[in-house]
């Protein structure tokens, strides 16, 4: 039986939804946009085809022969590699303070995914976050301020509808197979405990399997479950899903969050506060070196709290 609150929500949401504006978009515009994108990709594929032909059929056969003899290659004939490439550090450019050790990877489709610990204003203070950026997506998970957070704080699955990744892959794994719920399996050699696969239709039932160098299965996992298949020094702790949302984990880390200090700031005041916060963090790192990252987070947090107390709107 519904409570009064649930009834209010059902009725209120239905009423609020009617206030949504009409979509000012014709189906033809969608088609045109997609066609334009496909033409760009087609042009790129054409250029690649020329290069491939120039390489010669013999060369391709030689590559295939080499692959067949690769001990780490999968045994399934339908299972092909989805390569992952480690990009140079210069690829990573963040406008906010970034802890040394960030990693940028190039996926099979040419997209980049970056993993970093960054500093950021966080409610009434300053915090460090584990951040992942891919295409137009970015996700952050707040971390405790007073600890040296590793780049991959804990094993996690995540992604968007066009990306599936697994961070914290066991160090002994030399190959990870990704089995989409719909589509063909692909495999990849993890880099720094990370695997990331472009996917056509992300699904919670997608499966990852990690193998060691001898082809033994170490871990098999889907979005909701992790199953340790063989014994060994593999951490079989619970795996969280990192699809989005730093809000709930943030509550887990910080407890109830105080929003009162920023609740009444207008846009200009908010920009002033964020500029001050990042400038303070950059200044601390410049003065003390990157090794002082964790201390700088702490001192910046304290400075931001003081700044906010001194910059509350009159009458608030």
């Amino acid at each position: 039986m519904k409570t009064t609150l649930e009834e209010r929500l059902s009725e209120g949401l239905a009423r609020s939804a009617t206030k949504a504006p009409a979509l000012i978009l014709a189906v033809g515009e969608v088609s045109t946009h997609v066609a334009r994108r496909r033409r760009r990709r087609s042009n790129l594929r054409g250029a690649l085809a020329v290069i491939t032909i120039a390489a010669g059929v013999g060369g391709l056969l030689a590559i295939r022969a080499t692959r067949t003899g690769d001990a780490s290659a999968p045994t399934s004939a339908t299972n092909v590699e989805s390569p992952l490439r480690h990009l140079p550090d210069a690829t990573i450019r963040y406008s906010t303070p970034t802890k040394p050790g960030a990693i940028a990877l190039e996926l099979a489709d040419g997209q980049h995914i970056t993993f970093a610990i960054t500093g950021s204003p966080f409610y009434d203070g300053y915090s460090q976050q584990s951040t992942i950026q891919y295409d137009t997506y970015a996700t952050g998970r707040a971390q405790a301020d007073n600890v040296d957070v590793p780049l991959i704080p804990e094993p996690a699955l995540g992604g968007t509808e066009t990306l599936a990744y697994w961070t914290g892959v066991p160090a002994t794994a030399t190959r990870v197979e990704y089995i989409p719920a719909a589509g063909k399996s692909v495999w990849q050699t993890p880099i720094a405990g990370i695997t990331a696969f472009p996917t056509a239709a992300h699904n919670p039932n997608d499966t990852f399997i990690a193998y060691d160098n001898d082809g033994n299965e170490l871990i098999r996992t889907t979005w909701a479950t992790t199953h340790l298949v063989s014994s060994g020094n593999v951490d079989n702790g619970p795996m969280h899903f990192d699809y989005s949302s730093l809000s709930d984990p943030a509550v887990d880390v910080y407890g109830p969050i105080d929003v009162t200090k920023i609740a009444d700031l207008d846009r200009a005041a908010t920009e002033g506060y964020t500029t001050f916060a990042n400038a303070t963090m950059f200044g601390c790192l410049a003065a003390n070196g990157d090794a002082a990252w964790t201390n700088c987070i702490g001192t910046t947090d304290a400075a931001v709290k003081t700044y906010l107390l001194d910059h509350q709107p009159t009458g608030s």
């Binding site: 204003p121 409610y123 137009t136 506060y273």
Partner: peptide, 26 residues
Amino acid sequence: YMRRAVVNRCMSWHRHTAVVRRTQSQ
């Protein structure tokens, strides 16, 4: 697929930092 894409995009709008989220909500 469409519902998931819409929800994901709407959530990504709020994603970056708490301050950005707060500003955008205002």
